[in-house]
Design a protein around this nucleic acid. Structure first.
Lengths: 129, 129
DNA sequence: CGGTATCCTGAAGGATACTG
DNA sequence: CAGTATCCTTCAGGATACCG
């Protein structure tokens, strides 16, 4: 007998598991952690400095989620003081490639976006007067 | 005289404008709206059905943000009943390409992620016993 | 150093009602 | 139909304190 026919994954479907995967990868800190680890491996505190603005709590939480999803490899070394290295798995590298492309695009397009905002604000100004 | 030397945009910097651009593009509903509009233009209520789970309020708010950033073109037709068409600008299409790639990747990798989660949960089970 | 546990606040976001 | 306005709830996420 054949395996049951599952509906094809569809991120636009609220209940599809792919929606959750996408949300983890595009989460506020997930994007930046993947982007950073795409450069190289980092220790916890290095990563905390690299991803400016992230709290210890959110970094730990984000790393756990990414590790559980199979994107991040966590290596704890039993030394004193403790040392934990984080890096990407092959699966995580795939995600990080795409995310890094988006990050670089955002950096490159800042001027265009700022121009669009100014234009929008001008057009919209006093519309409610 | 030359224009002032601005630091190169860097998403890892909490204060860099590119961080905000990236956050708009990767926001919960922004990703899906860009992904949907990448397929074709949509009317408001069509879009609301396409992006399952989004509320009227969040869809309107997301569209406004994306329009202001120059990603989305809004065309209101003065007819009764009202009709508004949304589509991507050239800039928005660039973002949507990248976002759509990420969305499709998420759909394709669901099995790998689910396997990783199961493995993680098994490894982790009873670790606190 | 690399976390976890607890508490607490603000902002995201849903439900509902109303309008052009 | 395509919103806006209002209210209310939930929860992401920051601050702090503590542990292995």
């Amino acid at each position: 007998m054949k395996v049951s026919e599952l509906p094809p994954p569809n991120v636009f479907d609220r209940l599809c598991p792919s929606r959750g995967v996408l949300e983890h990868v595009t989460s506020r800190w997930g994007v930046l952690v993947l982007g950073a680890l795409h450069e190289r491996g980092y220790r916890f505190s290095e990563l905390r400095r690299r991803v400016s603005g992230v709290s210890e709590k959110m970094l730990a939480q984000t790393l756990q989620t990414l590790e559980r999803d199979g994107f991040v490899l966590r290596e704890a070394h039993p030394v004193i003081p403790p040392r934990v290295d984080y890096s990407l798995t092959p699966l995580g590298r795939e995600a990080a490639e795409l995310v890094a492309a988006l990050a670089h695009w955002s950096e490159r397009r800042v001027p265009a976006v700022e121009a669009a905002r100014e234009s929008y604000d001008t057009r919209t100004a006093g519309a409610s007067a």
